[in-house]
């Protein structure tokens, strides 16, 4: 229902809690007001929806997901057993450093 897309923060603007983000070479000013609890900095990746940053993207969790996907099909049962398959519970909120 809601189109949201990752973009990288290029520049934090001093006024209005705004920032310039870059989505594959397209730039737009967006509001950072929803990230007041967990401020993002230049270079961070955020999820963008209707001109607002919704959440920070965790590079660590993204890589972890890719690792799980890559392991699929090889020895699916073993890796799933080891991993429990579900990552992302209350204790591991995303927000790790983005590269």
């Amino acid at each position: 229902m809601c189109l949201a897309i990752p973009g990288q923060i290029r520049e934090l603007l001093p006024d209005d809690e705004m920032a310039v983000v870059d989505v594959m070479g397209v730039r737009r000013k967006i509001s950072m007001q929803m990230l007041v609890d967990e401020p993002a900095t230049e270079g961070d990746w955020v999820l963008i929806h209707v001109g607002f940053a919704m959440s920070k993207i965790s590079d660590e969790d993204a890589r972890e997901q890719l690792r799980v996907l890559e392991a699929m099909g090889d020895d699916a049962d073993a890796q799933a057993e080891a991993r429990g398959y579900a990552f992302g519970h209350a204790e591991d909120e995303s927000g790790g450093p983005a590269s």
Partner: peptide, 13 residues
């Protein structure tokens, strides 16, 4: 498709 066109298309659906 150039990256910028893709980016705009992803952003705007």
């Amino acid at each position: 498709v150039r990256d910028e066109v893709r980016g705009a298309c992803e952003l705007l659906g």
